[in-house]
């Protein structure tokens, strides 16, 4: 059975989100297996040129909704555009990265089309010709395996989990403008304000350095930030220090914060409460630095150091700096 896939490609400020690229690569793999067609769908204002760059993900077709009314995001208008694209292409699956914006858009589109929806997927596998989606539940203590039984299903994939492929710079793809009539909307984005104090954003960061109670106080964030700068890492934090007011909650990793899957997660002075592990246990390599040898975090760690993080982190920063300057 040919199973066409339509990917909603999230862009911001004229840039394709890294996580959207991962979804395109995964969709390509599935289409190659099934013989289905890969359609990339991009919506926005003045995005035609950006859309053309999507061919490098080996798309069969690029569908663009390029309209001034899509310049700023509106749930209703984007839902309308996405559903219009879905009706036109009639895919078996609609896929997107699991992001804040897809949490707003994808379930709404799924409800409008009365379709299956599984979000925050960490694995897709075909069993007996049926696609099964794995979604971590209960703080990652359980993996739910779901089967999608409607003719159309919406799937969002966790960033940093599905491996990127090599782009194909010379691939050519059909491109088509989606005819779309913007109707009035009742709510829309009127401004976007960049968060202050965020150098590298957490959810798509390849490396994260997180601090907990063990860093002793907010005066030691610069110590962690320096390690972040050397590694190109994002700065994370445990719930305990967010609740203590040491740092803004947008840095929080864990159940009531962000779920992350970087290739490297360095937990500094974090004991490893279940609620923290929930947010980072799908990281590929985990480093734990903690002065308590019995800290739970060591059970999840790939590498562990028992010791005073205030002493170790600066030395780690300089060791990494030296190593990285050698290459």
């Amino acid at each position: 059975m040919t199973e066409n896939i339509l990917v909603w490609v999230e862009q911001r400020n004229g840039q394709i989100r890294k996580a959207a690229g991962e979804v395109l690569f995964e969709a390509r793999r599935l289409c190659t297996g099934s013989g289905g067609k890969l359609v990339a769908f991009l919506a926005g204002g003045n995005v035609a040129q950006l859309a053309a760059t999507l061919a490098r993900y080996r798309t069969d077709k690029i569908l663009v909704a390029d309209d001034p009314s899509l310049e700023s995001y509106s749930t209703e208008r984007y839902t309308e555009a996405l559903v219009c694209a879905v009706k036109k292409e009639n895919p078996r699956y609609v896929m997107a990265a699991h992001t804040a914006m897809s949490q707003d858009l994808i379930p709404r589109a799924a409800a409008r089309t009365d379709s299956a929806c599984v979000t925050d997927i960490t694995e897709l596998r075909e069993e007996n010709d049926v696609l099964r989606a794995v979604h971590p539940m209960y703080s990652g203590k359980v993996l739910g395996v779901f089967e999608l039984t409607s003719p159309l299903s919406f799937l969002t994939l966790r960033p940093n989990v599905f491996p990127p492929d090599l782009p194909d710079e010379i691939h050519e793809s059909e491109m088509e403008q989606l005819a779309f009539n913007p109707a009035p909307v009742r709510a829309q984005v009127v401004a976007t304000v960049a968060s202050t104090g965020v150098k590298v954003e957490l959810s798509e960061a390849p490396i994260i350095v997180s601090g907990g109670r063990g860093i002793k106080g907010p005066e030691h964030w610069p110590m962690l930030q320096e390690l972040c700068d050397v590694l190109g890492a994002a700065l994370g934090a445990s719930r305990a220090v967010v609740d203590a007011g040491w740092i803004d909650h947008q840095h929080q990793v864990g159940q009531s914060g962000k779920t992350v899957s970087p290739k490297l997660y360095i937990a500094v002075g974090i004991s490893g409460a279940v609620q923290h592990l929930a947010g980072m246990s799908s990281s590929k390599v985990i480093v734990a630095i903690n002065n308590n040898p019995d800290a739970l975090i060591f059970q999840s760690a790939t590498y562990g150091i028992v010791g005073d993080c205030l002493e170790i982190v600066p030395k780690l920063t300089s060791a990494c700096r030296t190593l990285l300057s050698e290459s």
């Binding site: 995001y73 992001t99 804040a100 914006m101 709510a187 829309q188 984005v189 009127v190 401004a191 976007t192 304000v193 960049a194 968060s195 965020v198 954003e201 957490l202 959810s203 798509e204």
Partner: peptide
């Protein structure tokens, strides 16, 4: 949203 706030009216 990641790294920013969108203000919705």
């Amino acid at each position: 949203i990641e790294g920013a706030h969108q203000i919705v009216q």
